Structures are given as C-alpha cells and as structure tokens.
Amino acid sequence: MKSIRFSDSHNKFVAFGCDTFAYLTDKKDTFWTGCVSYCNNMSLVTNGTWSGIGCCETRVPKGVRDFRVELTIFHNHTNCWKFSPYSYALLADSSFSFNASDFLTFKNVTMMPVTLEWAVGNKTREEAREEKGFACVDVHSECYNSTDGPGYRCNCSRGYQGNPYLEGGCEEIMSD
C-alpha cells in the first residue's frame, strides 16, 4: 500500500492580497496553520518576498494528506481596492514567488504546481522488513524511512540504477 501526502519540505502555504486572513486545516480540523496580510498602501509591498505585507507564507505541516483552505477578509478591500481587489490562499511548490502584479492578474490562475511525497505503507523500514510483502526486493537496494511521515522507500545502492522494487531491477552502472 502506498501513502501519498503533500511534501512539507517542498511546498508552502501562501496567502496574498492586502486584506487577507487565510488558514490551512485538514478535513478533521486536527490542526490549523495560516497567516495574515494587510496593507493600505502599495508602496509597502515588496516583490519577491513573503514579508507579511501584502503577502505571507507558512510551512506545511508534516504528513498532510488532505486539506481545506479558509480565506477571510477584514474590511471588504475598502482600503486597498484600487491595487488589491482580491485575496488568495493556496498550497504551492516552494519555488512559487510573489509579485505585486499578482494582486490583479492571479484571478485567472486555476492550478498551481505542488510536490507530492509517497512512501510504502505506514510502518518503519525495520518493522516492514520483518513482514511478508517488504517492497525493497532487489539485492542491490537500500531501504530508508520516509522523512515526510510514516512509511519507507527504496533506492538502488550506490553504483546501481533502476527499480529497487523489482527483483533484478537495480543494474550496475557501467563506466566508459
């Protein structure tokens, strides 16, 4: 069984707009994380940063499999309508960078890249090795615990490449 989740090390939760309170939670409300961004003057906003003025970011908790985004405004954009008429909140790949022009142009964006992590099962490699169905079957494979939640993953050993989940799947790398 594979376990897929949103990477905590390669994603971030972001919000932008000058009248924005946003948070991320799982479907069971076991956690909330988020940020606030308010500004009434475009000169306070700095492109390329997540400074908290016009935009903000926070880390994604480890092991998130599902989530819900809540977005609230404080003053109906009354003090920023001309330059920031909307608020946005989303999960995005860490490479996503903020630009003040996004205040007006982002409304047409329907998808953003995110990074998913996966692991086999929900047991550590030590626990899984003792059971039938251990996934790292190639003799030249190595197993390691997932760093982003429960489960384990496999790699071909140094000097080998291929698929460690298949017998004979890791082949020696030949040098010229």
Rank of each mutant, 00 (worst) to 15 (best):
K28F: 11
V69Q: 02
A135P: 03
A15T: 01
S3D: 14
N122P: 00
L116A: 12
C80P: 07
H10M: 07
C143A: 15
F134M: 08
T20F: 03
A15H: 01
C154V: 04
A100P: 01
F83M: 05
P61D: 12
E167C: 05
A22W: 01
D176M: 10
P150E: 11
K12D: 02
G34C: 04
K123N: 09
G17P: 02
C39A: 14
V139D: 12
S7I: 03
Y165F: 12
R68S: 12
K2I: 09
F134Y: 10
A15C: 09
V137Y: 11
E130Y: 04
T147Y: 01
W50Y: 05
G121W: 01
R65S: 15
S84Y: 02
N163D: 15
V64Q: 04
G169S: 06
H140C: 12
D26K: 04
D102A: 10
F21V: 14
F134Q: 04
H77Y: 12
K12R: 13
R65Y: 06
C170G: 07
K27W: 01
T33G: 06
T46W: 03
G48M: 02
G17A: 10
N41P: 02
K82L: 12
G133V: 01
K28W: 06
T110Y: 07
P85S: 08
D29V: 04
C154M: 05
R68A: 12
I4D: 11
D26C: 05
V139G: 02
V64R: 08
C80W: 02
E171K: 15
V120Q: 11
E167W: 09
G63I: 00
K27E: 14
V137Q: 07
L71F: 03
T147K: 13
F98M: 04
K107V: 10
T58R: 08
C35W: 05
L116N: 07
N145E: 10
D66L: 01
M111K: 13
E117T: 09
E172W: 03
P164I: 02
E142M: 13
F134A: 09
D176P: 15
H140S: 14
M1Q: 10
Y86K: 09
E142I: 14
T30K: 10
P61I: 10
S146T: 05
T58E: 10
R158M: 11
V109K: 14
S101N: 11
N122L: 05
K62I: 15
E142T: 13
D102G: 03
H77R: 12
F31S: 07
T110G: 08
T30N: 15
S43E: 11
L104A: 06
E171L: 14
S175H: 13
V109M: 11
P113R: 11
N11L: 00
S141L: 06
D8P: 04
A89K: 00
M111Q: 13
C143H: 04
N79I: 00
P61Y: 08
A22T: 02
D26L: 04
Y86Q: 04
M1R: 12
G162C: 08
H140E: 13
T20P: 01
E117N: 14
K62N: 11
W50Q: 01
T147S: 09
T110D: 10
D176K: 12
C55D: 08
S101A: 13
